[in-house]
Simulated assay, not measured.
Amino acid sequence: MDRTSAAAHPTALVPRRLVPLGGRGPEDVVADHRGGVLTGLEDGRIVRVERPGDADRAGVRVLAETGGRPLGLELLPDNALLVCDAERGLLRIGLDDGVVRVLADTVAGRPLRFCSNVVALADGTVLFTVSSRNYPLAHWIGDLVEHTGTGRLLRLAPGGKEPEVLLDGLQFANGLAVAGDESFLVVAETGACRLTRYWLTGPRQGRGETFLDDLPGQPDNLWRAPGGPIWVALAGPRVGALELLHRRGPAVRRTAARIAVRAPFRPPRTTGVLAVDDEGRVLHHLEGRRSRFRMVTSACESDGRLVLGSIWEPGLAVCDLPGTPG
């Protein structure tokens, strides 16, 4: 299915089962090789959901506590977990003992805040995003309204102490995914409704370019299994009034942002997920118009199901993968 037909004819995104977690805000979800799903909650806990698709045998186990607000996660081969903590920076957690170690909490001498999503390469290089340098997580909507363009892509070399800035000026940098051959990285720009490619190897190494533009919603976290597509969570639909506001001057946007961070917020009931390949083709577009599970911020495959996370909800949603019986 090409990009145009997939976007024009989305299939239904219907939660078949909700998995309560005893805490709110499972912002990112990552699957492990044993059929479980790891996620972080707003109270700082990292939990593993055992067999989320099995109503009779599902369970939730606490693995560690970050002492902050965990967002993006990345499992490592040595049974450790990388965590982007919005308050504490880039962390590494040993899943055998629950020990939390800070890998980086400053960039160029300034505190590392609003660390968002992370991936690791085969050589141990860690790449991660910072969504905003002007707004904290609690006021994330202010950055989307003001359209600050202060998001960053950072790299931490193996054994390194200080991250290096690879890309700056991103519109709310968010999820990350690596190409199957590790030749490039895909970065979600939530505030621009696009995916950006950063070349890691080859003649264009070190360059950024548009990978997939004009998405049907605001992309959040990205996830892929080996050999599988990149799953793109769409945290919300496109908002015409917001896009018109982005064309106004900085003073107008700044004023609107001050209002937005004080106004009550409730996510719309339109949710979405895309699956894209390394050529930038949309393989699947799933959409829910009156969803009981709001603000999908992550998606991963686990045990033959599509598992959704949300910074808003108190649990996970389990859906059918495209092409499987409902």
Rank of each mutant, 00 (worst) to 15 (best):
P219I: 09
N221Q: 05
I230N: 00
E243Q: 14
A256M: 10
P229N: 05
V165W: 05
R155G: 10
P163K: 11
E243G: 02
E189T: 07
G175V: 13
Q171P: 00
L234S: 12
G202K: 11
G175S: 10
T201Y: 02
L195M: 01
A188P: 00
P203Q: 05
D213L: 06
R224T: 04
V187F: 00
L245E: 09
G180L: 04
G217V: 01
L222C: 02
Q218R: 13
F184W: 07
G236M: 14
L185V: 11
T196D: 08
G191D: 05
L242K: 04
T190L: 14
N221Y: 06
A179L: 03
R254H: 14
D168Q: 14
R248Q: 13
E162Q: 15
L200N: 10
L234N: 14
L212M: 01
E243Y: 08
V165R: 10
W231L: 12
P216T: 09
E189V: 04
E182F: 05
Q218A: 15
G202T: 08
G160L: 08
I230Q: 03
R253C: 08
V187T: 08
L167D: 04
L245H: 06
A192C: 09
R204W: 07
C193Y: 10
F184I: 10
L242V: 09
G227N: 00
Q205V: 06
P226Y: 01
A173L: 09
V232F: 10
V239Y: 06
A192P: 07
R224K: 03
R238T: 15
W231R: 02
L166C: 08
